[in-house]
Amino acid sequence: MTEGSSLPGAIAAAPRPTRAEPVRLSSRSRRRIAGAARTLTILLVILVFFGPVVWIMLTALKQPRDVYSLSVIFTPTLDNLRTAFASPYFLGSRTLNSIIVTTGTIVLSLPIATAAAYAFSRFRFPGGNAWSLGVLATQFIPPVIIIIPLFVAFRSAGLLDTRLALIIANMSFVVPYSIWMIKGFIDAIPADMEEAAQIDGASRLRAIWDVVVPMAIPGIATAAIFAFVVSWNEFFYALVLSRQDAVTLQVGLMGARTERGDAWEIMAAMGLVIILPMLVLSRYVQRYFVAGLVSGSVR
């Protein structure tokens, strides 16, 4: 080949292998290309679904002037969090409210739900299955229908803008669903052990406490994760039932919409506080979703 023809020759050479070798690529290289395409697709999926989460968290740590740019490289700062904790955003008291409401919901709901789940699992009730199915059916009542009478009732009871009102409202969906979830776990525990405990001299209640509850701990923990996620994330009831004192993190987000426009860096700072526990618990959260799938519904 002459020097002058080297360039066209190189171009001509490129397609040649496909003609010289069989038209199909070898199965190994085909698999390698498919594998690479697949990896790329998965990375793209991660970018689309997880990117926004990262973006919000990064924004929370940006200088206000960087917030309104698309730059990914910046000097991190805690200024936004500092501003958010001050008046008029009160991130501190909002966070405290969220923690108290969430903890209160979990602490009150789980014992109630565990007791009912045990009863529905082990005893026959007149009407049979209708009871436990009815409990699940309550999950499909739209919240807007519940909140109107609750609002009226809490107003006349003087409970508006209290954390207790939010806890009670949260229990309306946490208790029924937890019953359903824990019942599934208790159904899978054979009755032998608690029968043995009763013959060994324990009352039914003591057998539940000594034997059934320790064995149902994984189920109760799963229900606790569920209760945490939905109470922490609850927005609508809190929006209607709180004004000032009981405002939670979720409702606090609305407070960053000022007359001068949305204060994005403050929203992002609040978002960071909202997301953090979910990130920390993500492994367990996933487990709860999978457990929830068994019963076919998640709020």
Binding site: P190, D192, M193, E195, A196, A197, Q198, I199, D200, G201, A202, S203, R204, D210, V211, P214, M215
Partner: peptide
């Protein structure tokens, strides 16, 4: 009488041991 008050002991087919 409740089982606990009958003063009987029982061995179960699947043993009924407390796993925890």
């Amino acid at each position: 009488a409740l089982p606990k008050d009958r003063d009987v002991a029982m061995v179960f087919q699947n043993y009924g041991l407390y796993p925890h």
